[in-house]
């Protein structure tokens, strides 16, 4: 029996040593600083590492520093990484960009997609909901079931909620019999098409591309209203990169983004090309977010 105890004791010891070694070793793996960026495309999130690895290679060649891409799953994670200086450059949505720039003083919007100057949201409805395409949001929306996209999305949450509140003077939760958050534009379309929700709000670009891909049955689901246009996705960079990577670095990054013309790289976002943007372009987004209580 004493052998068994000995064995037990040594087992416990080995475990403790392993675990403490592990905890000690982990922080050492943090690497020397490269220029890191992240991006969450508004459609097709597959093979992020491969696709955006190529964008990193392009930026690296243009900027003359090591550039790495880090995939993230949510806007919240992207904002956190940006705030903690784990990434210095990020492809944000309209709202997440505003949130990130508020948290990191000095950071600035560099460039937006060509499409993002005049972005819009489609309200879509299932056939059985009995709603027709109209010039304004129909009063018959009251009492229907409704789904947004992800909670932090500009086109799937912020703008549609703003126009709902403007039209009906009440919170979506009071207007609809149920309000869900599908988490993604493709899910919104699938859920409205299947009738799980009667009405939904979706990024117009995702709708158009799924329509072109034949994934949408327009006998079942169709667009009933289009929001006015607003600015959306943009590249945002931290204010302190010039200190770390040399004077003029910010301008070089902007130049590299604006000059990106390889169709394969642009298809990852997917955008036609990038055009200049500034923090001021996103003031309407910030005001909207404040108006509906998403920002204090």
């Amino acid at each position: 029996m004493s052998r068994l105890y000995g064995l037990l004791k040594s087992l416990v010891c080995v475990r403790l040593i392993c675990s403490s070694l592990l905890l000690l070793a982990l922080p050492l793996w943090a690497q020397a600083q490269a220029f890191v960026f992240t991006a969450i495309p508004d459609q097709d999130e597959s093979r992020l590492q491969q696709r955006f690895g190529k964008v990193a290679d392009y930026l690296s060649a243009q900027l003359g520093v090591e550039v790495q891409y880090i995939p993230v799953k949510s806007y919240a994670a992207a904002i956190t990484a940006f705030r903690n200086n784990q990434v210095q450059l990020a492809w944000f949505g309209g709202l997440s960009g505003v949130q990130a720039r508020r948290l990191v003083p000095g950071s600035q919007a560099l460039a937006q997609g060509y499409e993002d100057q005049l972005f819009k949201t489609y309200f879509i409805a299932h056939q059985d909901a009995g709603l027709e395409q109209a010039d304004e949001l129909p009063a018959a929306l009251k009492g229907k079931t409704f789904t947004f996209g992800s909670k932090g999305s500009t086109s799937g949450r912020l703008m549609p909620e703003f126009y709902l509140r403007q039209q009906f003077k009440s919170a979506p939760q009071a207007l609809f019999s149920r309000v869900g958050f599908s988490g993604d534009h493709s899910r919104t379309i699938a859920q409205v098409q299947s009738g799980a929700y009667q009405v939904g709000a979706v990024n117009y670009a995702v709708w158009e591309s799924e329509l072109a891909a034949g994934k949408i049955d327009t006998n079942k689901v169709q667009v009933i209203w289009t929001t006015p246009t607003y600015p959306d996705y943009q590249w945002t960079i931290r204010g302190d990169v010039d200190q770390h990577f040399g004077v003029g670095f910010t301008d070089n990054v902007r130049k590299a983004l604006l000059e990106m013309n390889d169709a394969e790289l642009l298809a990852s976002f997917p955008r036609l090309r990038f055009v200049p943007a500034s923090n001021g372009d996103y003031e309407p987004i910030e005001a909207t977010a404040k108006a509906i209580g998403l920002l204090d």
């Binding site: 943090a30 690497q31 890191v36 903690n84």
Partner: peptide, 9 residues
């Protein structure tokens, strides 16, 4: 385990 990218502080 994957490498930590870009996080040092």
């Amino acid at each position: 385990l994957p490498d930590t990218i870009g996080f040092s502080d």
